[in-house]
Design a protein around this nucleic acid. Sequence first.
DNA 1: TCGATCCTGTAG
DNA 2: CTACAGGATCGA
Length: 263
Amino acid sequence: MPELPEVEAVCRRLRDEGLDERIRGVRIFRCATDAVAALTPGRRIERVERRGKHILVHLSGSVMLHVHLRMSGNFFRIPDHRLFSTYARTILELRGGAGLVLEDPRALARMHAGPSAEIEAAIAGVGVEPLSRLFTQAWLQAEARRSRLPMKLFLMDQSRLAGLGNIYTAEALYRARIDPKRQANVVSAAKLGLLHGTIVEILNDAVQSAVAAYSGPGQFREAESFSLAVYDREGEPCTRCRRIIRRIQQGGRSTYYCPGCQR
DNA sequence: TCGATCCTGTAG
DNA sequence: CTACAGGATCGA
C-alpha cells in the first residue's frame, strides 16, 4: 500500500472515524510492542498526524501511538472488532464493539506506543515534508549539491525528504526527465527546479487519488486512479519517445526508467 | 554502500 | 520452483 499519499489517506480516514474515540482494550497478535497494550487503554484519540510515512496518533495524557505500515500494512476502523480478517495483526477496541485494526499480510508493519516525548525523539530524524513550505526549489538544489548519491536513492532517503517511495520516486524522475542513476550533485539546477514541481504535482495528484480510492466503493463516481507512466512497465515503449522502459537495481530495489528521455 | 533480513503472497 | 513486492534496518 503505502507511500506518502496512501499514508495520508489512512490518516484522513482515521480522523473521520477515530477522533475522540477512547481505546477500550488492545489485542496484539503481531507487529505491536507490549507498550501498546500497557499504555493505550483508557486513552482518547485527540489528533492524528502524519510525518512522512509515519502515523502518529496523539492520545490523551501525552501518550502517542506510532504506526508504520511498511510495505503492505493498513490501518482502519472496522464495525466489529471480533470480526477481524486473517491478516489482522493488532486490534484496538473502541466503544460499541468497533475497532481499529492493523492489517498486514506480510507482518512487516510496526506499532509502538510511548510518552509523546519519547515517540517524538524516535522520529526526530524524519526529513522535510514534500508538501510543506519547507520543501522549496532552493532547498532541493542545496541538498542535491552536497550529495553524491544517485538521484533515486537521494530522493528515497527518508531522513532528507520524507514520504517518497519506490513508485512515486520513479514517476517524479520520469516526468522531470532525470536519469535515476545520475549523481545528485551533478544534476543541473534547472532540472532540479523542474523536479521540485513534479514531486509536488505527483504527490498532490496521488493523495487525491488515494483518498478517493480509499473512501471505499464511491457512491458517486469511481475515482480515476493515479496512472503510472514508468513504474512496473519494463519492456513497454515509453509514451514520450518510444524507447523501451528498463528496470535496474538500485539499493536492492527495482528502478524503472526510460533510457531515451531520462538523462 | 552493498547484501541480508524481517514476513507472506503472488506472478511467471 | 524462482523472483519479486508501494519499507527500513542492521552488520559486514
